[in-house]
Write a protein that binds this DNA or RNA. Structure first.
Length: 554
RNA sequence: GGGCCUGUGGCUUAGCCAGGAUAUAGCGCCGGGCUUCUAACCCGGACGUCGAGGGUUCAAAUCCCUCCAGGCCCGCCA
């Protein structure tokens, strides 16, 4: 409804003013939509803007095509407000299962996110990638795109080689009940400490990497064992976070099947490519002063080479490539894009997010200095369980545990997704454990409330008469959900969804306190119940797009 | 030194790309509200030179320039 109305008003304003850009925006508190076109025309017509606005409003008010729209000039602004029948239509649409779904696109999208090195558990920095990536993935599916989500597994890097070496030489046993990825991290930290004391080990690790690249079966087996072990743990964490990947792509496969050799051959034919002891691309014309090295002097490939092969493969199998990467990848990401362009391949769109640090400084897996996602989930779940137990002591423990789990993931995911990706953040336990307003559980609570009202109401006739300011504000807000989904995929910024869901919960809570539902009567009761149902559905759809469980009771 | 990002009340944050109507919200603070649909809630109040300066414009948190502060990057690591 909202989009149709937007485009219709835009069309009519164009016809009325003769201007191409009619400066139509959302009007905030003042209106559903508003135009500042009068300012622009004031200059051309040499008349005061409020007169022009008033003229336009007068003309449009007599236009029957616009239907149930209140049009008013307020000073220099032309304001449009949805009338009762449009609000009814908005609520009717919001009741539909899957509300917010946009018309299907045929463009096949591949979205890569998380892709953390398999040398330890995901930490609170990695899961910013996971939460942004998974929320975007859900938004893309909601926006009607066929989508595949991938995790690129760096299974032949120095980190993995270091762990493989550590397992062979340090005799560290896995502890009882220790999660795979945490065990791998322990070996990794110990191996790094060993290297510090005895730098000669670096040569042994270099040798392992060369053997791996050569395809030596014994070495490959060792690497695969390390990575498989670690990935088991990582997958469990991702599942706990409600994040999923359709495919894990192993970096070494591109070496094994010859794609890396093929891409090197193609790069070699570029005029920008130089070969001395290494093979490198001169990207200075593209604005990069650093050499983009693709083959070491010992003949082995580097991460960038394999990444080039991976993206070439993606470009051939999908129409649109999206990567979610930490801000530390900005340079290498831009070099990758530039080189793919030189090769005539499709470069990825890259969503960068800035760093998450700890109050005491940057995180480091190597130094064992990080807060793991598993510890975070455990702490937040424990706090959530306490809360549920205080509020709902009568519920069986099993049910309280299930609620606590969902509440914890809601708190964690929302806390991360609500902040714009370009903002660097400092991880804060107090914020993570806060379940009040502007949190995931706050929104879940609004949803549970709506469910509870509907359950008590039983059967009711649908009706659509909205008069109080709270009813009208809710109906207006419901209409915007599909626009927010559209905006999220257009800008690749999932935090819009987070703001939207919170605003909807805010409006619903205010409505709840001022407009009794079950105690009202007749058409008012039916209309309010219908509205509550529409809010419930829209909250559910927006929560699920954020990867948060829409609990019916909490 | 160079590149990218950020700077909005004590703290966190939306708005900035597509300039317009009293700058969004939370935490914290002060005050009020649970025999009434779940108080993980609601209402009221105090708190802002939108980092600083200049420019463009009828109009700047938003665009441009300079400066300051913080983060990230500048490896034959990934």
């Amino acid at each position: 409804m909202f989009q149709e109305k937007y485009h219709q008003i835009e069309r009519v304003l164009r016809a009325c003013t003769g201007e191409e850009d009619v400066l139509l925006t959302t009007g905030g508190d003042h209106a559903d939509l508003a135009s500042t076109i009068a300012f622009k025309l004031a200059k051309k017509q040499k008349r005061p803007p409020h007169q022009i606005a008033s003229d336009i409003a007068g003309k449009l008010s007599r236009n029957p095509e616009l239907g149930d729209l209140q049009i008013e000039a307020v000073g220099p602004y032309v304001n449009f407000r949805f009338g009762p029948s449009l609000l009814a239509e908005a609520v009717r649409e919001a009741l539909e299962p899957g509300y917010g779904k946009l018309p299907a696109h045929s463009e096949r999208v591949v979205l890569e996110h998380t892709s953390a090195n398999p040398n330890g558990p995901l930490h609170v920095g990695h899961i910013r990638n996971t939460v942004i990536g998974d929320s975007l993935a859900r938004a893309f599916r909601k926006a009607g795109y066929p989508l595949e989500v991938q995790y690129y597994l760096n299974d032949m890097g120095r980190q993995v080689a270091t762990v493989a070496w550590g397992l062979d030489h340090l005799g560290i046993a896995r502890e009882e009940g220790e999660k795979e990825d945490h065990y791998v991290a322990r070996v990794y930290v110990a191996a790094n400490r060993e290297i510090q004391e005895n730098p000669g080990i670096t040569e042994e690790i270099d040798h392992l990497m060369q053997e791996m690249e050569r395809g030596d079966p014994e070495t490959a087996g060792k690497f695969r064992a390390v990575v498989s072990l670690c990935v088991e743990g990582i997958k469990a964490t991702l599942a706990a976070l409600n994040a999923s990947h359709d495919r894990f792509v192993w970096e070494s496969d591109f070496v094994r099947i010859g794609d890396v050799d093929r891409v090197i051959e193609r790069v070699r034919r570029l005029p920008q490519t130089h070969e001395d002891e290494t093979l490198w691309v001169d990207l200075s014309e593209q604005g990069f002063e650093k050499k983009y090295i693709l083959r070491r002097s010992d003949g082995t490939s580097v991460y960038s080479t394999r990444d080039l092969a991976y993206h070439t493969w993606k470009g051939r199998n999908y129409d649109r490539l999206i990567d979610v990467l930490g801000a530390d990848h900005k340079l290498i990401g831009a070099q990758l894009q530039a080189t793919l362009k030189l090769l005539g391949e499709q470069p990825p769109e890259i969503v960068y997010f800035e760093f998450v640090s700890l109050p005491e400084g940057s995180m480091s897996t190597r130094a064992g200095k990080f807060v793991s996602a598993d510890d975070l989930i455990e702490e937040v779940t424990a706090k959530a369980f306490e809360e549920v137990t205080i509020r709902r002591p009568e519920l069986p423990e099993e049910e309280r545990r299930a609620i606590a789990k969902s509440v914890a993931i809601a708190a964690i995911r929302y806390d991360i997704v609500k902040v714009s990706p370009e903002k660097s953040t400092v991880f804060d336990w107090k914020e993570a454990l806060n379940f009040e307003r502007q949190s995931g559980p706050y929104i879940q609570y609004a949803h549970a409330r709506a469910c509870s009202i509907l359950e008590k109401a039983g059967e009711f006739e649908q009706a659509y008469r909205y008069e109080t300011e709270h009813e009208v504000a809710l109906a207006r807000h419901l209409a915007r959900f599909p626009v927010v989904v559209e905006q999220t995929v257009k800008e690749l910024r999932p935090h819009h969804l987070a703001s939207y869901a919170r605003e909807l919960a805010d409006l619903f809570n205010a409505f709840y306190h001022y407009n009794p539902v079950l105690k009202s009567e007749g058409e008012t009761r039916s209309s309010r119940l219908t509205l509550v149902d529409a809010v419930r559905n829209t909250l559910k759809e927006s929560l699920e797009t954020l990867g948060i469980d829409a609990l019916r009771s909490m």
